[in-house]
Nucleic acid binder design. Sequence first.
DNA 1: CGGCTGATCGTG
DNA 2: ACGATCAGCCGA
Length: 191
Amino acid sequence: MKEKRLPREFFMTDGLTLGKELLGKIMVHRTTLGLVRAVITETESYMGETDKGSHTYGGRRTERTEPMYHIGGTSYVYLIYGMYCCMNIAAGPEGIAQAVLIRSARPADEASEQIMLALRKGQKKHLADGPGKLCMAMEISRAQNDVDMVKSSDFYVTEGIPVSPKEIKCGKRINIDYAEEAADYLWRFYL
DNA sequence: CGGCTGATCGTG
DNA sequence: ACGATCAGCCGA
C-alpha cells in the first residue's frame, strides 16, 4: 500500500484544474491515533483575488489568508462559525491566492476507517461528508495550517484511485450566497 | 428525507 | 458583527 506522494508540480496549476485533479487522490495525516488515509471525493475551487466567494477577494492578504498566497501544496486551515475547521490546499506559485477546499472524503482502508470513527465519536453515519466533519474525522485543526504538504512527513497527499473525466460532476459552491454572481459558478467538483 | 435553528469565537 | 458548518429536532 505504498503510494507515491504528489510532487510540487502537481499543485503548480490553477485552482480549477487542481480542484478536479484532487478527486480520487488520498490525503494522509499522522494523527494521535495513527495514520489516517482518505480518498478525496468532493472539492471546491476558490480562485483568489478576483473571486467574490474567496477569502482573498479584492486582495485581502491578511495574517489569516496568508497561506492561500503561498506556494502550491501549502495547507490553509481556518476556523468557521466559531467551532469547525475547513481544510484547503493552495494552488499555483507563491503570490497567487488560489486554493481548493476539501469538502469530503472516505476512508481509504479499514484501519483508517476505525480511527476516523473514533475521532468522530459516535457519528457512524456522515463520517466525513462535509468540510467540518472531514477535519474532525482526520484530526485536522489549525495546528495543520500553513504546512507544506509536499515536504511534511505527517500531512501530505498521495496518488489514489484513477478517475476519468466522465466521473467528475460539477455543481455550485455551497454557502457563499454573499458572492453574488460568483455563487452560481460551477466550481464544486465531486465523484 | 428536507428544512430550520442554536451553538460559538477568531478575524478584521 | 459575521461566517466556505454541524447536529439535533421537527414534520411529512
